[in-house]
Design a protein around this nucleic acid. Structure first.
Length: 538
RNA sequence: GGCCCCUUCGACUAGCGGUUAGGUCACCACCCUUUCAAGGUGGCGGCACGAGUUCGAAUCUCGUAGGGGUCACCA
């Protein structure tokens, strides 16, 4: 028997990490057994329907590398795959249930139901539909329906006894039938409810395994009753643990307490491999205990019976750590560069050759956990020598190391070869000859080259930037310090220095903005795009 | 509240009657070091509780407690 699984998201709002999580596990199960993974759109709620959501969800799975075998876009043998296009199918199935007396038409208005609930509440009764419409004679139901009276269709559920279904992970789960109120199958707008459509579709689409979130456990008996009413065999049910918020009680994951948007993680520079790997460890681990593994590894080793049931907390720290690991240990520099280039272009960075890019990425990647962090930390590698920002701490280091910078400027300009060994030797020699502490030289130089105090090794920086740019940057740094010369009045000197720094930064900022605008325009032109909105005439 | 499910370090988890209860993240310390990272080494830290079964329980049973989910013409 072919294993068929499905992901059945509802097109409401931003694609959710929970959808990715459940999709991943269903995909893995199907692929593990050479089966099919179906994508079905559960768009039966016209109130919450979001026209953009379907494409966004599909885009999310595509980004993750989880590709359905059947779905609304690609079709398949058991379509259509949007529930809103299957209304006729639901109608014939509900007719069968009505005919058999397994379901009935109920005519209570929303007001009536509200009143019923209010009374139940007041009298301390259990809440829920009390089955008052179940006894209306069939002929009357049909007559009123034919007269156009608004109504729903409800499933007739047993009053006594209990209903049991089998959960692959929990064993038999039994719920008293008194807990199951006659649920609505078809809403008054003619659309089916989840309970009904999901059963009809899973059967029609030959779904063999239903892996879904634990929140569905208590309504599964409704589904079991439906399968039995139709005389269909039930799929294997396995309810996945709910992803949890990192709050004290570990409540169900929610966008109020955590970023649940996959697009948001993508934009931040989380890699799809890392997100997938992270989600796979939520309630699951490989038999060999490896914690870093690919989607293919996961598929090859996935066994739903190994799923753990405690609700796993969605831990950003761990996600970021995994992402960082992929950034520096799993991806090659070239692969990383491919993913970074569009971001660099968006940032308005310009570069001449590919090797430069690879060098930059190589020294920066141990220092970043996400793609975007790397981009943000790379500005001084791409902006003109007189345009990158010089932060206040860096300015202080430069001011304190002016003598060293002047000396080094001279030495660098006289160096025969400007490679790693030569630069290293020069710096070591300088430190030795002056009998000063190494940081007293390195920090001012680093500050001058990058405008920041947190950056890669000075030797790496110098070699990557090259002699010309190193000299220009030292020159600029020194130039911006002229106003900081000692004065009779220390307070006045400090104020003057501050004003000068401010002016210098202001000038750099203007140059920076101009450079970024130009680089962006160039990049857009290279991509063959029209100039960005508002860029014309500027 | 009724019903259902769950329970090993702060987090993710290994464990499936006999282990000094293991690994990863986080945290701390040390090493490396030119800042920040990365990397290396080490450390802190856990079987919710109570009975029972057994020669022996993290592992099996029951109870208690705690937590979660669910009780819609939303999915």
């Amino acid at each position: 028997m072919t294993v068929v699984t499905r992901i059945a998201p509802s097109p409401t709002g931003d694609p959710h990490v929970g959808t990715a999580y459940v999709g991943l596990f269903n995909y893995a199960l199907a692929k593990r057994h050479g089966g099919r993974f179906v994508f079905r759109l559960e768009d039966t709620d016209r109130e919450r329907y979001d026209a953009d959501a379907e494409a966004a969800i599909l885009a999310m799975f595509d980004w993750l590398g989880i590709r359905p075998d059947e779905g609304p876009e690609i079709g398949g043998p058991n379509g259509p795959y949007r529930q809103s296009e299957r209304l006729e199918i639901y109608r014939t199935h509900v007719d069968a249930l009505l005919e058999a007396g397994a379901a009935y038409r109920a005519f209570e208005t929303a007001e009536e139901l509200d009143a019923m609930r209010a009374e139940q509440k007041q009298r301390g009764l259990p809440l829920g539909y009390d089955g008052r419409g179940a006894t209306v004679p069939r002929e009357e139901q049909e007559r009123r329906a034919a007269a156009g009276e608004p109504h729903v269709v409800r499933l007739r559920t047993p009053e006594a006894g209990e209903t049991t279904f089998h959960d692959l992970l929990r064993g038999d789960v039994t719920i008293p039938n008194a807990e199951i109120k006659d649920p609505v199958l078809v809403k008054s707008d003619g659309f089916p409810t989840y309970h009904f459509a999901n059963v009809v579709d899973d059967h029609a689409m030959e779904v063999t395994h239903v892996l879904r979130a634990e929140e569905w456990v208590t309504s599964t008996p409704i589904h079991a009753l439906l399968y039995r009413a139709f005389g269909w065999s039930e799929p294997v049910f396995a309810h996945l643990p709910l992803l949890r918020n990192p709050d004290a009680n570990k409540t169900k994951i929610s966008k109020r307490k955590l970023d649940t948007s996959v697009a948001s993680y993508r934009d931040q520079g989380i890699l799809p491999e890392a997100l997938l790997n992270f989600l796979a460890t939520m309630g699951f681990h490989l038999p060999d205990g490896r914690e870093v593994f690919s989607l293919d590894d996961f598929v090859a080793q996935f066994d739903p019976e190994r799923i753990t049931l405690g609700g796993p907390v969605f831990d950003l720290k761990k996600l970021r750590h995994l992402n960082a690991h992929y950034l520096r240990e799993v991806l090659s520099v070239e692969e990383l560069a491919d993913r970074l280039e569009p971001r660099f272009e968006d940032a308005g960075y310009a570069w001449d050759d590919e090797d430069y890019l690879l060098d930059v990425i190589d020294v920066l990647r141990p220092r970043a956990e996400t793609l975007q962090e790397l981009v943000d930390a790379a500005d001084y590698f791409f902006l003109p020598d007189d345009a990158f920002a010089i932060h206040p701490e860096a300015r202080k280091k430069i001011a304190a190391g002016q003598q060293a910078l002047e000396d080094l400027e001279r030495s660098f300009s006289m160096l025969d070869f400007f490679d790693e060994d030569a630069v290293d030797e020069l710096l070591d020699e300088y430190v030795r000859s002056r009998e000063i502490k190494k940081p007293a030289v390195m920090m001012p130089l680093r500050a001058a080259l990058t405008g920041t105090t947190n950056a890669p090794s000075v030797t790496d920086l110098a070699v990557i930037l090259g002699r010309e740019r190193v000299l220009r940057r030292i020159g600029r740094a020194l130039g911006e310090m002229t106003a900081a010369l000692p004065d009779d009045d220390p307070a006045a000197a400090e104020a003057a220095a501050e004003a000068a720094a401010k002016a210098a930064e202001e000038a750099a900022r203007a140059k920076r903005e101009a450079a970024i605008a130009k680089a962006r325009a160039d990049a857009a032109a290279r991509r063959g795009e029209a100039a960005p909105e508002g860029a014309d005439g500027a």
